[in-house]
Design a binder for these strands. Structure first.
Length: 403
RNA sequence: GUGGGAUUAGCUCAGUUGGUUAGAGCACUGGUUUGUGGUGCCGGGGGUCACGGGUUCGAGCCCCGCAUCCCACCCCA
C-alpha cells in the first residue's frame, strides 16, 4: 500500500466540512472588513522567501521544500503566505498605484518539520494583508477581525501583544541587548549563544532556568521604544480596551519571521496541546521595500487552519432533503424517476432495494433526510406517494404529480 | 535535527509469566409475528496483531531494524 508522505494528510468527510465551514465563516468576515481575495502560486523563487522571511529564521534555514526545477530555477514550495502576496502586490504595481489594498487568502503551506499534533508538513493557513495604512487603527482592526473570526467559530483564545519597535528604536535596543548577553555569555546555554547571533530577542523566552535568572536584569523591549512606537502601542491598547478585546502584554513575544516591526500579536489556545499558537500577525512596514516595491506600510495575520479545526463548534446539522424507498420491486423504477425530477432543486437519497416501511424509516434517518417518501402496493395502485416529515412526524399521502 | 512513548477489526480499545481457532463496544450488514425511524430482539461479515528480520518446540507478547503517529525540545500557524 502506498501511503501519504509524512506530515501530509487527506482531508475528507467530517473534517472537510469543518474545513469549509471555517473558510466560509472567515471569508464572510474578511469581506465585511473590506478585504478581497488573492491567490498566489504554491511555488515561488527561493530568493523571495530568503529576502522576506529572512535567512536567519528556521523556516528558511532548514524547513523549506527547496529544489532546482527542470529549467534550473531555484524554487520552493511556499512556507508561508505573506511573501507571495507582497510579491504579487509589487508585481501588479499596486505600490505605485497608491491607496489602500486589502487582501485575504487561504491555501496550503509547506514546511519540512518533524510532525506533531497541530504541526504538519503540508498545512493550511487563512491570512489577510493590508497595504497602505500606517495608522495603528488598522493594527487594531486586524486584531478585531481575527477576534471576530475566532468568536464566530466558538473558539476561545488568549491574545498576546507586544511591540517590536521600528527602525528608530529596534536596532539600538538590539545592540544593548546583545551587549547585555555578552556580559554573561559564559553562563548561558548553547541555544542562547546561538540565538545571540541569529535572533537575540529570542533569548528572553529561553526555557532554561539559569538563563532566566540571568535575564532578569536584561533591558526590556517595551522600555526602549521610541516616542512614535510608544504612542502607537498605547493607542492600540486603548482601542482594544474600548472594543472589549482582552489582551496580555508579553514582552517576550517575538514573531519568528524577520519582516515584522511595531505591533506583534498572537492568539493562543490552551486546548490543543503544545502547538498552541492559532493566529499570528503584526505590522511589517519595511517588507514591500525589501521586495523592491515603493515603501508601503502593511499589517497582516495568518491563522493555522488545522490547529483550529478541532476547536470549531459546528452548528447543529439539520435534516435535509428526501429519502425515497420502494416497498416492492415493482415500485423501484418509479422512485428512481421521481428522484431524478426532485433533484432539480433538492437533495435526494434513493434506496434501490425494496424493503418494509420500518427499514425505510431507519434508512431515511441514517442519511439525515427531512422527508421519508415511500411507494408500496397501495400507492402504486392509487398513483400516490406516502411522505413522512421526520422532524415533526406529520404524514401525508399525495398524488405523484404533486410530489 | 535530539530524546521518549505508542502502533491489535472501519473507529475506540482489552489481550495474564510466550502456549489451542486473537476478543469487546461502537460502526457496517441481514433478518425480525408481513406499513412507522432516530431508542427492541436474533444473526453475519470483517484482523498478514504497522512493516522487515531474529530468538524459541511455539511470538500479538521477548530482541533488532524500519515507517507512521503522539509527547518533550527546537521552531511556528
Amino acid at each position: 500500500m502506498i501511503s501519504s508522505l509524512r506530515g501530509m494528510n487527506d482531508i475528507l468527510a467530517e473534517d472537510y466540512e469543518r474545513f469549509t465551514y471555517f473558510i466560509t465563516t472567515a471569508t464572510e468576515i474578511a469581506k465585511k472588513y473590506g478585504f478581497h481575495f488573492v491567490q498566489t502560486p504554491l511555488l515561488e523563487e527561493t530568493a523571495l522567501f530568503k529576502r522576506s522571511v529572512g535567512e536567519s529564521s528556521d523556516i528558511v534555514g532548514k524547513e523549506m521544500y527547496q529544489f532546482i526545477d527542470k529549467g534550473e530555477n531555484d524554487v520552493c514550495l511556499r512556507p508561508e503566505g505573506t511573501a507571495g502576496v507582497v510579491r504579487a502586490f509589487v508585481q501588479k504595481k499596486l505600490d505605485k498605484a497608491g491607496g489602500v489594498h486589502r487582501f485575504y487568502y487561504h491555501g496550503a503551506m509547506f514546511r519540512y518539520e518533524r510532525p506533531q499534533k497541530g504541526r504538519l508538513r503540508q498545512f493550511h493557513q487563512f491570512g489577510v494583508e493590508s497595504f497602505g495604512v500606517d495608522s495603528v487603527y488598522e493594527d487594531a482592526n486586524m486584531i478585531m477581525m481575527a477576534s471576530d473570526i475566532l468568536s464566530a467559530l466558538g473558539i476561545g483564545y488568549r491574545l498576546q501583544l507586544n511591540s517590536l519597535g521600528d527602525q528608530n528604536c529596534m536596532p539600538a535596543y538590539r545592540e544593548s541587548l546583545v551587549k547585555f548577553i555578552e556580559s554573561c555569555e559564559d553562563e548561558i546555554c548553547e541555544d542562547c549563544q546561538r540565538r545571540k547571533l541569529t535572533n537575540p530577542i529570542r533569548v528572553l523566552d529561553c526555557k532554561n532556568e539559569k538563563c532566566q535568572s540571568l535575564y532578569l536584569n536584561a533591558p526590556k523591549l517595551l522600555d526602549n521604544l521610541c516616542a512614535g512606537c510608544q504612542s502607537d502601542f498605547d493607542k492600540l491598547k486603548t482601542i482594544l480596551d474600548q472594543n472589549n478585546i482582552k489582551y496580555e502584554i508579553d514582552t517576550n513575544l517575538v514573531r519568528g519571521l524577520d519582516y515584522y516591526s511595531k505591533t506583534a500579536f498572537e492568539f493562543v489556545s490552551d486546548n490543543i496541546g503544545s502547538q498552541s499558537a492559532i493566529t499570528g500577525g503584526g505590522r511589517y512596514d519595511r517588507l514591500v521595500e525589501f521586495l523592491d516595491g515603493k515603501a508601503t506600510p502593511a499589517v497582516g495575520f495568518a491563522m493555522g487552519i488545522e490547529r483550529l479545526l478541532e476547536l470549531i463548534v459546528m452548528p447543529e446539522s439539520k435534516r435535509e432533503g428526501y429519502y425515497l424507498g420502494a416497498m416492492d420491486d415493482e415500485a423501484i423504477d418509479m422512485i428512481v424517476t421521481l428522484a431524478h425530477q426532485k433533484r432539480k432543486d433538492a437533495k435526494v437519497n434513493v434506496e434501490y432495494k425494496s424493503k418494509n416501511l420500518k427499514n425505510h424509516l431507519k434508512g431515511a434517518d441514517k442519511v439525515n433526510a427531512r422527508f421519508c417518501c415511500v411507494v408500496g402496493e397501495n400507492e402504486r395502485n392509487d398513483g400516490t406517494i406516502w411522505v413522512k416529515d421526520l422532524e415533526n412526524k406529520a404524514e401525508t399521502t399525495i398524488k405523484v404529480e404533486d410530489f
